[in-house]
Amino acid sequence: MTGEATVTVQPVTEQAVVLRLSGVLDADGAVVLGRELDLRLRRADERGLRLVLDMSGVRHVSSTAVHTLDVHTRHRAAGPVLVTGATPQVRRVLTTTPLPGIRLYPSLEGALATVSSVPTSRTPQPEPYQAGETPGEVFGLRAKARTSGIIGMAQGILIARYSLPAPADAFTLLRAASQQYNVPLRVVASAVVTAPPPLSEKRWFPGRRRTPPPALGLPRADPVDLRDRQQVLRAALYAVVTLGDADAAEIHLTDRVQDEALALEAHHGLDAAYRDCLALVAGPPAVCARAQAEGRPVTVADVAADPEMAGHPVGRAALAVGSRALHSVPMTTDGGDCNGVITLHRVEPGAWLHPGQGADLEGLAHDLAAWLSWYRRTVVQDALEYLHAQGSGGG
């Protein structure tokens, strides 16, 4: 803007673009601010992006500039512009006048972390695929869409935190941490979004206490590396099918970045259409969501006769895969946190588990809950430490 003030634009995620302001926003600067807001908001709307105003470099805001900001944003209360990084003095000016079209955040990282597609309170119903598209192609696109938003949020946070020049550099950091510790890329991205900011320039979690992994009573001859997430879940799935005399099974884990929704992580005997429907479960009537909400095992003896499930997409998906009876067991820690849910399938209707089987499955679910808590505070935090060292230039 005039004299000292400047404006730069940077796309930082697949969902947001940042307009960086610096210097002094005086009366002359308000004119330029108005033009920039008009242009950037229009382009952001065309591309389906949220606009973030980074004001960390602004030293002074005039009343004219505040009025200009209000005029261009007051109609956006349902989807406000995110304003971040304002100094205490600038923040006082912005909060003196009601500005319904903006939301203030103390840091760019915090603002970017809110730019996400949050699941609704019910299980999403997949849209039918279009003519010319194969189901496999559509399922793949949906799976990518479910993870791209989380990865995009993590990229935006890393760009702001380490002053990276582009989203590709942030993705390189995520991928390096993922490969170094064999942690899925989506899990690393989710941890970046949900973990508190690094506590020092050198260490993300300085002084953290390391503990050995908890014992897992997996009835399998082959040794399992407890730092390998895929190995543990695969072995657990084998144990579930064996212990529960099941025809199919699935394991969902809670996703912290998506309001503890259940993400499908391991499966046996389930086709692609079922996995697509139950890939992310945000609430009942899915049996796994019932078990999570109630904190206890839940059995549906006959899906076809269950009034909540028979006409719902999750019930139809179970029937389509040949499952008539379902049994879900929550993975609950000693502290009462639900880290996931195990679900067993049977082709014949009826409650089939005897008390001994039920107790064994609950014991395995408890062991898996303890293991996942350990994995998150050990292996995942190791990956974050590595990422932080690389991003800070100390790697």
Rank of each mutant, 00 (worst) to 15 (best):
Q155P: 01
Q89T: 15
A160H: 14
G149F: 08
R146Y: 00
A170H: 08
A160V: 07
L104K: 08
T73N: 08
T87M: 03
S121V: 13
I159L: 15
S121M: 06
T123S: 13
V188C: 04
A131V: 10
P119M: 00
T87F: 02
Y181G: 02
R186W: 03
L94Y: 13
R92P: 00
I151M: 14
R92M: 13
P126K: 01
A177Y: 01
K144E: 11
V115G: 10
A170T: 01
I150F: 03
L199K: 14
V115H: 09
L199V: 02
V83Y: 03
I102E: 01
N182E: 12
I157F: 01
L185K: 08
P98R: 14
G110C: 03
A111H: 12
Y129M: 01
S178R: 12
L82M: 13
P80E: 04
E201M: 07
T97L: 11
R91P: 01
V81S: 10
V192Y: 06
L174C: 11
R146D: 06
G156D: 03
G136K: 00
A131S: 02
M153K: 07
P88H: 13
V187C: 05
E109T: 15
G136C: 00
R142F: 00
P98E: 12
V193S: 12
R92Y: 02
A195N: 13
A177W: 04
T95L: 15
L82G: 05
L141I: 02
G79H: 15
Y162H: 11
V138Y: 06
L104S: 02
P198L: 06
E109S: 14
Y105A: 12
P98C: 13
P165R: 03
S190R: 14
Q130A: 15
V83F: 10
Q89P: 01
F139V: 12
A143H: 09
V90T: 11
S116K: 14
G85A: 09
Q155C: 13
P198T: 05
A170C: 09
V187H: 12
V183R: 13
T114F: 03
R122W: 08
T172Q: 13
L82K: 06
A113E: 12
Y162Q: 02
Q180G: 01
P165Y: 08
G101N: 10
E109L: 06
R76Y: 06
V193P: 07
R122I: 00
L104N: 09
S121K: 09
T172W: 03
P197E: 05
T114M: 05
T147E: 14
E137D: 04
I102D: 01
G156K: 04
G101D: 04
A160I: 04
L185F: 05
V93R: 09
T172K: 13
A86R: 09
I150W: 02
L185N: 02
P167T: 11
T147S: 14
G132R: 00
S121R: 15
F171N: 06
V81E: 08
R146G: 08
R203K: 08
L174Q: 12
T120N: 07
T123W: 04
R91S: 05
V81L: 12
A86S: 14
Y181V: 01
S190P: 01
T97V: 15
R74C: 03
A191G: 05
Q155S: 12
M153G: 05
P80Y: 06
P135N: 01
G79R: 15
